[in-house]
Design a binder for these strands. Structure first.
Lengths: 355, 355
DNA sequence: CTGAAAGCGCTTACAG
DNA sequence: CTGAAAGCGCTTACAG
């Protein structure tokens, strides 16, 4: 037991008991006085004044032990240190704060098995719900969440043992359609998509959007996720049937642009490029502003917060399958030229002979 | 009371009582069996097996209610949505996770009075310690933290009612010295520092580092934090006694570079520029890679985590004053020319006459 | 409206 | 080593 000082208040925190004693009522009455939205009896008013004067701060841990809800939500990231992760967290945090929830945040930092551990740890914290951002691992603890009826939602993407979670993820459908419309208006009819190994979203999606927009699509697999831009451009140039536009994640797009410069391939005259700001890339600098499909995950955070709050407070059902939220925007930079003029460039004609 | 299913286990979580009952011991024994590092008696072994089989997950809230420590740490950000904030959080999170602490994260998002509110809220969560990142506001709740002996540490910077907190912040001393050495080796003897209103760190610091390195320093105040780059460059050019190098936060440096281009001032021939990656800027693109003092806040996070853990576990005293952690690196881009040749440029001579 | 009491799930002196 | 009991700070039926 802690020491009491001369006023009879324990040295650390003021408790409800202290407030009740000072106000001359029972703890039950004190509890109710503080809980009710507006004071009813005169006792209520007095209790509140005493609480304020003593600097009473309710103990959430004690409250939640009794009420079986902690007003706490866990967010586990596979990687936290990226702009996309931050923007998501920011939006999520704002949406949940508003309703009195506090966020536990943890990051696996790419360490094997760490994600699973953190999910388990948040179970011990008795979070009211859990968000898993790009989850991967065994997902063994998910059974316990299900058993305790604690909702778990995957964000962005999911893998391995987390595959069966409901997902709220980003889609760039709208922006992709804008981009395709723009390409068509410039006379392009075919695009090439550089797909790094293991990267399905959003690069994978762009292929389908392009096809749906009536474009011919050629997919180039980037082995091990590592692009050799000069090598790629050489064989690209040698290909008579090459598409006039290349779509690549931002990182690769930048390197293509640099390599093109070295090879005297002029963008956007000889080659048009669209970058996709995907989930892990910082913004590198280029001489020519990139035309870009910009992935902005804030919408995902907003939607995730709203969905969860509706479920937790309103009792609405959680989405059972995957839900895709519009999170793209089309930014015209300067790397898209005319599709008609791209083919007959002299530089490229030389290549055609060789191919 | 919740329903019990056929095995006698409550439907939600398995409790210690459940484990004890199944193992045929008292809760006290069960508690001790699970708490001790290695099993001693044979009872201990059995309890552990039962706990594992039932999927027992200890309730941290209940534990902390008894033990008066929550193994929880609060982090309140003035702004979370910036690369610097993320890098800090990432490092902080890693350093504290390791010791079993979970992080509550919240952000004020620049809303008036919000920071104070969040600090108060974490008091209700009974965090074992609190980090305030760039705190500003009344800081009224700090008295309660002090009374409850909960350590509070400011990170990066502090203001207003948070002024008296101990601070762990970044210093770019090392990088600044490297930069100055480089400037001197290129023949520069004077630098100009563009100081936005209200921005003290790290721009303010650079002035002192430059002076300490024997440079002549000229400070330009940027009114309202908004730079008119073309206007600035015109009067700069007209000044016969102008320094040959300008140091500005990254954002301003980029705009200076663009404006210089318009005015036919060639960098680095006519003007050398150093950018400082300060706390709020994203990385914009420029044609010429910026020479830069890069602020990397991860070290601050690592140091903050270490300091706090030493205090919480080791019992060491918290730093009473401010502690500055080396967090800069010098990156030579391409915007520094020769100091000797900069002065006699024809373009600038014309300006000199007018000045 | 009020108070006494039970209980949330744990830990920890206290006896045996 | 073990168990019964008290207690952490709350909330919430239950009587009055």
């Amino acid at each position: 037991m802690r020491n009491r000082n001369e006023t009879g208040i324990r040295s650390g925190h003021v408790t409800l008991q202290d407030v009740a004693d000072t106000a001359g009522v029972s703890v039950s009455t004190a509890s109710r006085a503080l809980a009710s939205v507006r004071a009813r009896g005169k006792n209520d008013e007095r209790v509140r004044k005493v609480a304020a004067k003593l600097g009473y701060v309710p103990n959430e841990a004690a409250r939640s032990l009794r009420s079986e809800r902690t007003m706490t939500i866990g967010v586990v990231f596979a990687q936290l240190n990226s702009p996309l992760a931050t923007e998501l967290l920011d939006a999520l945090s704002a949406g949940l704060d508003e309703h009195g929830y506090s966020l536990f945040v943890a990051t696996a930092r790419g360490v094997e098995g760490r994600f699973d551990q953190l999910v388990q740890r948040f179970l011990e914290r008795r979070v009211d719900a859990l968000f898993c951002v790009n989850p991967a691992g065994k997902g063994a603890a998910l059974r316990k969440y299900a058993k305790a009826k604690i909702p778990v939602i995957a964000l962005f993407s999911k893998a391995d043992g987390y595959e069966r979670l409901p997902l709220i993820g980003p889609t760039i459908a709208h922006a992709a359609n804008e981009a395709m419309a723009h390409l068509r208006s410039r006379g392009h009819v075919a695009v090439g998509v550089l797909r790094p190994a293991g990267m399905s979203r959003p690069i994978e999606g762009i292929r389908d959007f392009a096809r749906a927009a009536g474009m011919k699509v050629r997919v180039y697999d980037v082995a091990d996720g590592l692009l050799d831009p000069a090598g790629f451009l050489r064989s690209y140039r040698a290909d008579a049937a090459r598409p006039t536009v290349l779509i690549a994640r931002q990182n690769d797009a930048v390197r293509l642009l640099e390599a093109a410069d070295q090879l005297s391939i002029k963008a956007p005259r000889d080659l048009s490029i669209i970058a996709i700001r995907d989930r892990t890339q910082q913004m590198p600098s280029t001489r020519l502003p990139l035309s870009m499909i910009h992935l902005n995950p804030a919408n995902v955070g907003v939607e995730a917060a709203r969905t969860l709050v509706h479920h937790l407070i309103g009792g609405s059902a959680l989405p059972s399958g995957d839900r895709l939220v519009d999170a793209g925007s089309w930014v015209e930079g300067g790397t898209i030229g005319s599709g008609d003029s791209a083919a007959p460039q002299p530089t490229l004609k030389v290549a055609r002979r060789r191919g």
